[in-house]
């Protein structure tokens, strides 16, 4: 009986070893791969100027004064020069909710690391372009 019990224990240990060797790791090899973000993820914004009417509802809705519209700036179409300050933004989504012209949305881009604080002040050109695809930008995907 003792022999069978020992064999059973060895079998259990081997089962664990085999399972752990061939199982997928639970961690991600960040930054080369990343998890899938849900559709509603409140990441950095994207501004669609064709729809924007510069009504300023997003500016009024923002609780931390992170959005600014410069109406005197005539360079941009329809005077909608939208500046985003990501050192202040808390990603509450009130501005996206306040926009009734479908001109402001969240994207699933959540890693906004920059070398300096000034780089987090997004200017009107930067806020309307996504310089990378939300999930594919890192080049290497392992899964």
């Amino acid at each position: 009986m003792g022999m069978i019990r020992v064999l059973g224990d060895i079998f259990r240990v081997l089962k664990h070893i085999v399972r752990q060797t061939f199982s997928r790791p639970f961690t991600y090899f960040y930054p080369f791969e990343d998890r899938e973000y849900p559709e509603r993820t409140r990441g950095r914004h994207i501004h669609i100027r064709e729809n924007c009417t510069a009504c300023g509802q997003c500016v009024r809705a923002c609780p931390v004064v992170a959005i600014r519209i410069d109406k005197s700036d005539r360079k941009y179409e329809k005077d909608a020069a939208l500046y985003f300050d990501y050192t202040r933004c808390i990603f509450c989504g009130l501005c996206v909710e306040a926009c009734r012209f479908n001109a402001l949305f969240h994207t699933p881009v959540v890693d906004l690391s920059e070398p300096s604080r000034e780089a987090l002040h997004y200017d009107p050109e930067r806020i309307e372009t996504l310089e990378r695809e939300p999930l594919e930008w890192r080049g290497r995907r392992f899964r």
Partner: peptide, 20 residues
């Protein structure tokens, strides 16, 4: 996160209903 888009700062309820 699936419901609200944020893991901790959910801001789910709002006066008059819920947001998501």
């Amino acid at each position: 996160e699936e419901l609200t888009g944020s893991r901790h700062a959910v801001s789910f309820s709002t006066p008059g209903g819920v947001r998501y």
